[in-house]
Amino acid sequence: MLITALLLFAQNTPGADSSPQHDEGSTQTTTEAAIPHITWFTQWDQAVKEAERLNRPILLQSAAPLCNGVPGMW
């Protein structure tokens, strides 16, 4: 549920569980249609350099690209 809420917050931004768990009963499958996505920098140094160059504030949201050791899921 938290994941779903955060998907609304920021497309594909993961949840805040310290150990990512997902709804056992959920069978939510989505195809990522051409819906608007946030453009994410993935490297801190590159992002800061870009923020200073453009004088834009920084939205930082870290996430682990795995769930219970399995990759491909925030």
């Binding site: 920021a10 497309q11 993935t42 992002a47 923020a51 453009l54 504030p57 920084i58 949201q61």
Partner: peptide, 18 residues
């Protein structure tokens, strides 16, 4: 949200990777 984020530099470091 996406529109609001466009005025920001959005960064999502992969935790535990660096």
């Amino acid at each position: 949200m996406v529109e609001a984020s466009q005025q920001w530099i959005c960064v999502r470091p992969a935790t535990y990777e660096n």
